[in-house]
């Protein structure tokens, strides 16, 4: 490994404007003048009210969306849309993104298959990953035969099998029930602790953000979302997400960040009510 300059992910002065639906209305600015750096091995959560452009930011980081202005640097290299998506990043989507026509194992090894890894080798790795996410023996099931939690595990294995240097996660557990969700959060932390990837984790759940991260970035309400707060989370690791929620240090942090977030959440709520 040759250490290059720069953080794992550097979003500099990003603005995303979307064209208006008709000629009379203004173009919609989802994200405005946002700068965000993620150091190597750092777990950063981005929280903000619903509909504030969190996913837009993540899509920019993934190279799926080209920002109107601003630059994205990955380990010191410019990410240009002409070169396609961010190859060093893995992306876990909010909604189900598994291929319904592939069995569990074939979904897990899809990325290896795209990279031309021989099938026997890919299958061996795939089985190992199924075991790591607790799905050993479920490889021959189709996604529709699995529960929501199992599908999330499958998606996690599908992303992590490629061993991406950066992990982008868009509210990956928001569709799960509370118990499954805490289990998955603990599993994610355990997997992350093994090799400390850089993680950009998007969520609207402040508790989840604090429990998982090294740093929490608070976004303002849209339109024209930008970071309005940056909080260091110096809770000890390893953590148990369900236990850490009870500690005084956690509650202090929660109070502090919520104070910064509250106004934005109310603003977003008012705006949604007005529409």
């Amino acid at each position: 490994m040759t250490p290059k300059e720069g953080p794992a992910l550097a979003l500099a002065d990003i603005t995303c404007r979307f064209a208006a639906r008709d000629a009379t209305s203004e173009p919609y600015t989802a994200v405005a003048n946002t700068t965000l750096n993620i150091a190597r091995g750092e777990f950063v959560s981005v929280v903000g009210p619903t509909g504030c452009g969190k996913s837009t930011l993540l899509n920019v980081a993934a190279g799926l969306l080209e920002p109107s202005t601003g630059t994205v640097e990955v380990f010191g290299e410019r990410l240009l849309s002409a070169h396609g998506v961010n190859r060093r990043a893995g992306y876990m989507f909010q909604a189900d993104a598994l291929m319904p026509w592939r069995t569990g194992i074939d979904n897990v090894i899809a990325g290896l298959e795209f990279r031309g890894v021989p099938r026997a080798e890919a299958l061996a790795q795939g089985e190992a990953w199924l075991r790591r996410v607790g799905l050993a023996g479920f490889g021959d099931r189709y996604p529709h035969q699995m529960s929501g939690g199992m599908r999330k595990r499958l998606a996690l294995a599908q992303t992590l099998i490629l061993s991406p240097d950066i992990l982008l996660m868009d509210e990956p557990f928001s569709a799960l029930d509370v118990q499954t969700r805490q289990l998955m959060e603990n599993e994610l932390l355990a997997l992350w602790a093994e090799d400390r990837k850089s993680v950009l984790f998007i969520t609207h759940d402040l508790e989840e953000a604090i429990a998982l991260s090294d740093r929490v970035v608070v976004l303002s309400a849209g339109p024209g979302t930008r970071p309005i707060g940056d909080f260091k989370v110096d809770l000890p690791r390893p953590r148990d997400v369900s236990e850490i929620r009870m500690t005084p240090a956690f509650l202090d942090l929660h109070r502090e960040i919520w104070a910064a977030m509250k106004e934005e959440v109310l603003k977003a709520y008012q705006r949604q009510k007005a529409v």
Partner: peptide
């Protein structure tokens, strides 16, 4: 085709 599915496959490195 769900845009999610396409985005996911692209992130997994599909040409």
């Amino acid at each position: 085709v769900s845009p999610n599915l396409i985005a996911n496959a692209r992130m997994l490195g599909a040409s």
